[in-house]
Design a binder for these strands. Structure first.
Lengths: 237, 237
DNA sequence: TTGACTTTCAAACGATTGTTTCATACAGTT
DNA sequence: AACTGTATGAAACAATCGTTTGAAAGTCAA
């Protein structure tokens, strides 16, 4: 094992200073360009389907740049995931940003209406983490645990509280948990997908109005489903 | 392009006769062993994550055997998909096997209760096509179109008719289409998945009773959702 | 100017992939 | 026995992958 020339952390140490122009235009640091290109490509096709050479070509950097600045390909990927998680942590998660004392039905409606556009659409910074999440579902990496803990679980907790309040039971009740899965399943189903494009031709919501209509359906459909669970006995076999 | 020694179709011509023992025990034809090993491995990890060498090692065949008997890796994969589709076409699709004049609610219940075990479980021949389907959703190949046409679309049509009958409208109604997606989404969400295992620890139904209970939830939840659509105006913006 | 440090570059390395080559062995026919 | 079509095996091929190398060029402080 040969010792590497330069520890990874040193690159961040040198990044504070302003830089003089080099032979070619280094207006943006190589590290930033790599992160930008990698974010876009990883979000598009996931970790394994993107090659280091492709990222470096897009970022106008040498192939060795990834190894130099991020240790290896996985290091670059984890950096992308890290900044995506930071973005979502900084900007208050819109899916849970609701005034206090809101009725549980309206909280659920708000969740679906703010969640669905992020799943269907492709532009925007907050959409990055959702695209990464979708690929992590198919082929998880080390990032899966982070995403679950920092994004998924808080959202599910938000849903569980609202649903439990609606039914009038504990948040640990099986009916609550299964209803959370039902809502989450319906939302995630609208994620763009080449397979589903063939199975449901033209059924993907195209414009904002269609997304809103689909969200309304999921909310109506699910709220009716949850209400029907109120009359049901909790301890069924 | 060099002409291949032996056209692919010739292998099936020679397979009718009984064979004398060779140096090693060729009790089963190489073609069959390759198909068996490939079915298991492709179902487990999808097309791209399985190597030809791995299949051949498992089938106790030479690496060149795939090229010889199936033209290439994709040819072997399509053969696997073909036999899986044939199996599902031969054995009447249980998800749609229901006596005539059954009430639409009961048809939907039957669909969910027979569909969900096939999604959750792993053993059995009919489960093969479902495992292949799940991988096709993540990374579609040529097989996606076949699976959609021969498996997905007939099932969705079964659901559409039942739901339209419940609501009392046309099968092309948006409410019908969205309800089909809601039911299908909830069912598919129970597919085993390493990512979901972390997000929903212990929430995957373990035994038959748990699967039945989950199916009952999906049916109850969805039927209530559909009933609520009856009172809604069809032509909403 | 010297020397230490940081960053970039072209090239190569080592591993793995799907696929092909060519020799060989077998069965059946003439 | 000789020939033909079928099948298998070890080895190699060609392409691609992530990663490493070693030299070169730059910056900055002494």
């Amino acid at each position: 094992m040969t010792a590497r020339r330069q520890p990874i952390s040193a690159s961040s140490r040198a990044r504070g200073r302003a830089r003089i122009a080099r032979v070619s235009e280094p207006d943006v640091e190589t590290t930033s360009r790599l992160l930008a290109s990698a974010s876009r490509l990883f979000a598009e096709r996931g970790f394994e389907k993107v090659t280091v050479r492709e990222i470096c070509h897009d970022a106008k950097a040498n192939v060795a740049a990834v190894s130099y600045h991020f240790r290896d390909k996985l290091g670059l990927y984890m950096a992308v995931v890290g900044t995506a998680l930071e973005t979502i942590r900084r900007a208050h998660d819109a899916t849970m940003d609701v005034p206090a004392n809101t009725a549980p039905e309206d909280r659920i409606r708000h969740y679906v209406h703010s969640y669905l556009p992020r799943i269907v659409r492709s532009e925007g910074k907050t959409e990055l983490i959702h695209k990464l999440m979708r690929h992590e579902m198919a082929e998880p990496t080390q990032a899966a645990r982070l995403i679950v803990e920092q994004v998924i679980l808080p959202r599910l907790d938000f849903l569980r509280r609202a649903i439990a309040e609606m039914i009038g039971c504990d948040t640990e009740d099986v009916r609550v948990i299964r209803s959370v899965m039902s809502i989450q399943a319906q939302c995630l189903f609208y994620a763009p997908d080449r397979f589903k494009s063939a199975a449901f031709p033209g059924w993907e919501p195209a414009d904002d109005a269609a997304i809103e209509a689909a969200a309304k359906h999921i909310a109506d459909f699910s709220l009716a489903g949850i209400r029907s669970l109120r009359t049901e006995h909790a301890g069924r076999a």
